[in-house]
C-alpha cells in the first residue's frame, strides 16, 4: 500500500512544481495548496499505514492489546491542515488585493517593490 501512496504523493509534488513554474500568480497559489496537501499525505504515509485497527484501548486495559494505527501523524496532519488552510486563505486574499492594486497577476509585470526604474534611468543618462 505504501508504494501506491508514494507514487500518488510524487505525482502531486510534480503537479506542484509545474504550477510553481507558471507566470500566473493564481497558479502559484494553487501550487502552494497542492504542495501542502501532498505534504499531509506524506506525513500520513511516513507514519506507516495500518488497516482496521483504530487506536482504541479497551475499558479495563491500560495499554492496547494488539498493534494499532499510529494516531500521532493524524494529530500532526490536523495541525498542519488548520495552519495551511488559514495561510492559503490569506494568500488568496492577498493575491486578490494585489490584483486590484497592480491590475495584473503576471509575475513578470510585478515590479513595484523592486523597480527597474533605477536601471532604466542610468541607461538614459
Amino acid at each position: 500500500m505504501e508504494p501506491l501512496f508514494a507514487i500518488v504523493i510524487g505525482i502531486m509534488f510534480a503537479i506542484t512544481v509545474f504550477l510553481f513554474l507558471s507566470r500566473s500568480f493564481v497558479r502559484i497559489v494553487l501550487g502552494i495548496f497542492m504542495l501542502s496537501n501532498a505534504t499531509h499525505l506524506l506525513i500520513f504515509t511516513a507514519g506507516r499505514l495500518t488497516f482496521e485497527s483504530p487506536p482504541l484501548i479497551p475499558y479495563d486495559q491500560s495499554v492496547p492489546i494488539e498493534a494499532i494505527a499510529n494516531p500521532l501523524p493524524q494529530a500532526l496532519i490536523l495541525t498542519a491542515i488548520v495552519i495551511s488552510f488559514a495561510l492559503f486563505a490569506f494568500v488568496l486574499i492577498l493575491t486578490y488585493r494585489a490584483y486590484q492594486e497592480l491590475g495584473t497577476v503576471d509575475v513578470d509585470e510585478m515590479n513595484a517593490s523592486e523597480p527597474r526604474a533605477a536601471a532604466s534611468e542610468e541607461a538614459a543618462e
Partner: peptide, 18 residues
C-alpha cells in the same frame, strides 16, 4: 496596503510558505 507593500508581501508569503 500600498502597492509595493502588497507585492512585496506576496513574494515574502509564497517563498516563506514554501
Amino acid at each position: 496596503g500600498r502597492k509595493d507593500q502588497l507585492e512585496g508581501a506576496l513574494k515574502y508569503a509564497v517563498l516563506n510558505l514554501l
